[in-house]
């Protein structure tokens, strides 16, 4: 990013402001695979990738399928003294059922299933028209804003590490087996992380503002 000598004459569209430290720059678009970084606080401002849109959509579709399947199928199974019990992710999320615990159940289900699911569907909704060079979808701006606001509350990857911890805790009480959903969830965590690193927020906002010109 290059510094602006006289900001008052630059058209506002040609400026970009670092959201972390408020430093203002003349917009210089990096090439695909390169990054524009804030000089002062080193925040990555723009990081476009070639065909990122298509890849993100593909990953998002995969995540939606995986979450839907993984939430229903058995996830972990324990057996002790001839008796066994298997649970799905929905069962785990809804295990808090008494009184105020119900609030906790809803929050847990939200953090590990519904928020990630909603974010992926919003991403698909926003990006498909952008990738196809069509005018932006109705309410695409609100949809992407919601998706960004939900980002810190999407906790699928934390849940996955939680499983590992739970397994060790249970190991001396009973024998633990993995259901198909366990492996699906493992793949899902990798996909969520990949997707976050592909998505360049600025490029999305920019193409929502100028749907044709890219």
């Amino acid at each position: 990013m290059s510094q602006v000598a006289d900001l008052s004459h630059a058209p506002l569209e040609e400026l970009i402001v670092c959201p972390v430290c408020d430093a203002t720059y003349q917009l210089q678009r990096p090439k695909n695979g390169e990054r524009a970084v804030c000089v002062r606080c080193h925040k990555v401002l723009i990081a476009p990738r070639r065909k990122a849109g298509m890849q993100i959509i593909a990953v998002a579709v995969a995540v939606v399928v995986l979450i839907s399947a993984a939430s229903m199928l058995p996830f972990l199974k324990i057996s002790a003294a001839g008796r066994s019990n298997s649970v799905s992710i929905i069962d785990a999320a809804l295990s808090f059922t008494e009184g105020p615990m119900l609030v906790l159940a809803l929050l847990t289900a939200g953090f590990i299933l519904f928020v990630p699911l909603l974010r992926m569907m919003l991403t698909i909704y926003v990006l498909v028209p952008v990738v196809l060079d069509r005018p932006a979808a109705r309410h695409a701006v609100q949809a992407f804003r919601l998706s960004e606001a939900l980002r810190p509350w999407s906790m699928a990857e934390i849940f996955a590490l939680g499983c590992a911890v739970a397994l060790v805790k249970v190991a001396d009480l009973a024998t633990v087996g993995f259901g198909p959903a366990f492996w699906m969830f493992g793949v899902l965590v990798v996909l969520v992380i990949v997707q976050d690193s592909f998505l360049c927020k600025w490029s999305v906002w920019n193409s929502l503002e100028h749907p044709k010109k890219r």
């Binding site: 506002l12 390169e34 960004e148």
Partner: peptide, 26 residues
């Protein structure tokens, strides 16, 4: 594009009479 002109003093949006959108950097 990595950093260029690192020796310059940065101008904040507020100093330039601007307000920044923290969500989309406009």
């Amino acid at each position: 594009m990595e950093l260029s002109g690192t020796s310059q003093k940065t101008i904040t949006a507020r100093e330039a009479g601007l307000v920044a959108c923290t969500r989309c950097a406009r």
